[in-house]
Design a protein around this nucleic acid. Structure first.
Lengths: 297, 297
DNA sequence: TCCATTCTCTGACCTTAGTCCGAGAAGTCG
DNA sequence: CGACTTCTCGGACTAAGGTCAGAGAATGGA
């Protein structure tokens, strides 16, 4: 790794936590502990379940309970049992709580404005653009790719999202029953492998390989959630698949794809795949690609 | 202010504190309180005065003293009186303290590396470039410009730095005694005004105006510290001067400058100054500029 | 020389953040 | 129904961060 890049990130950290961290101070400046303020904000105008708050903010249950008691005592929230499940409790902001939250927003906006104010208009534009870029790439780098059992909820979520997308994009729709199948067993090692990409523990992409012994690996089910497109995740998934294929003994990766999936086709070409003649009878396949893997050295 | 820009800054804050804040966790992961770790790092290999640490980290004197006691008890620092001033104390890292600090650096680098690792090489380059841009512009926006008495230490610092720069850059050097003077009285309101730009309370630039009643304001002593050049500070100082001139009744700003100060000349032209005939006998003046101020509406 | 100032340190005190544990109510499944 | 799980809550406790006031040593200036 380039040392100057590492150094840059550390310097960035120092400048940014000083200057941007001030936005969080807005939460402190209302004579309310930061924890309470953050919780108040996180509850949101529509209310939340206590358990989701606990998960989102990663708080101890006792601690969260106490924070809620404090907000309740100040008349900012109400806590009552969920209608369908008596164990879970729901929190709602009272009008006073909503007002307080709006005030936090206002303060936070004020801090942001103070950052922009001293800058010339065109500097502001540049700052905002650079921030968007940093955010985008940090998000991309937060995405985690792991081998997952095809029966895992995240795996089925991705499969359904993938099918749904094909249904929407293919001319004449998509019916998985008509396609060459890739059932759970076929994507479980060592017969195959399924990779799932997650962002903050939410599935945001997948890719699968069938690994018939002695034959080319077969890439299937490459999907990237719309929210994270344009972050290079497709390329990363493809790269991980090739690594998996190589370490599991395959020398070649093959795939077929539909003509409507233009980004995917561009991705395969950019990654060094070359178009070959049809090698199976997949009815949804218009283009067939192949790449000879480099021997890992 | 553009609401979408404000919004972007807030979103940036959320993503970045999550992801980059992890760099600070490195400081926590050594079973040492964050405060102690930060202090240890801030002392630096060369040692520091206790009072400068207190100022830099904005710590209560009692609190800082206790932190130092704790580090001392762990054998990481030594504290002893300054040689020239027996009141101030100096802190130095022991070999163990240096090792601990190096370890913190190493951990911090590790976190930074983890951010870069999942990215493609060209994404890394983009991230680092965008970070540099954000840092640069946030720094620019942190610079504070204020009217300062010419006898203030920051003002004299800027004056000396300015003269030193002219000495170095003018062909044949610079002697203030030969130039048209602008003494302290002439730069004290209402006869004139001196603006000093500061970054983290350190002077990093200045600009002055002489304001003879009923005549054009005369801009003098425009200087920007090398470290913050290219951040738009010159333009900001110039803009602030025009504002001061306008609110104090001037309709026109004039200035002369030397041909070697090319950035300054470019700045004046870009800001709408037009070159005019020589209007005084300043021996270091090669170019003479003038701008008619817009009437503040 | 004396007085005000600067600098550091200690003691006393407070709030916030956070952990651990066990009780108890509500739901689920065989 | 009974056993197990899920979810919430309060008690007990700890560590860390932080504030305030006062004492005492060293310095600088009138």
């Amino acid at each position: 790794m380039d040392a100057s890049q590492v150094d840059r990130i550390r310097r960035f950290n120092r400048t940014v936590t000083q200057r941007i961290g001030a936005l969080d101070d807005a939460f402190l400046s209302r004579s309310r502990p930061l924890g309470q303020a953050r919780l108040l904000w996180e509850i949101g105008p529509a209310g939340s379940e206590v358990r989701t708050l606990r998960a989102r903010l990663a708080l101890d249950s006792g601690y969260l309970s106490r924070l809620l008691r404090a907000l309740q005592a100040d008349g900012l929230v109400t806590v009552d049992a969920d209608a369908t499940d008596g164990r879970v409790r729901r929190v709602h902001l009272t009008p006073a709580g909503l007002a307080e939250r709006a005030e936090l927003d206002r303060l936070s906006d004020g801090r942001a404005t103070e950052i922009l104010r001293p800058l010339a208009p065109e500097q502001r534009t540049r700052l905002v653009a650079a921030m968007a870029e940093v955010e985008r790439l940090l998000t991309a780098s937060t995405v985690d790719i792991a081998v997952v059992d095809p029966r895992h909820p995240d795996a089925t979520f991705c499969r359904e999202a993938y099918f749904e997308e094909l249904r929407r994009r293919f001319e004449g729709g998509y019916d998985p029953a008509l396609a060459i199948p890739a059932d759970d067993a076929a994507l479980t090692p060592p017969a195959g492998v399924l990779l799932v990409a997650r962002l903050h523990d939410e599935p945001v992409g997948c890719a699968a390989l069938k690994l018939p012994a002695g034959e080319p690996a077969h890439l299937k089910r490459m999907w990237v959630a719309p929210a994270v497109r344009g972050t290079g995740l497709g390329r990363r998934l493809l790269h991980e698949c090739e690594r998996e294929a190589a370490t599991r003994g395959a020398r070649v990766v093959r795939l077929e794809t539909n003509r409507t999936l233009t980004e995917a086709i561009a991705l395969y070409r950019a990654a060094g795949y070359r178009e070959v003649a049809r090698f199976n009878d997949e009815i949804y396949g218009d283009h067939f690609f192949e790449k000879v893997l480099e021997v890992p050295g």
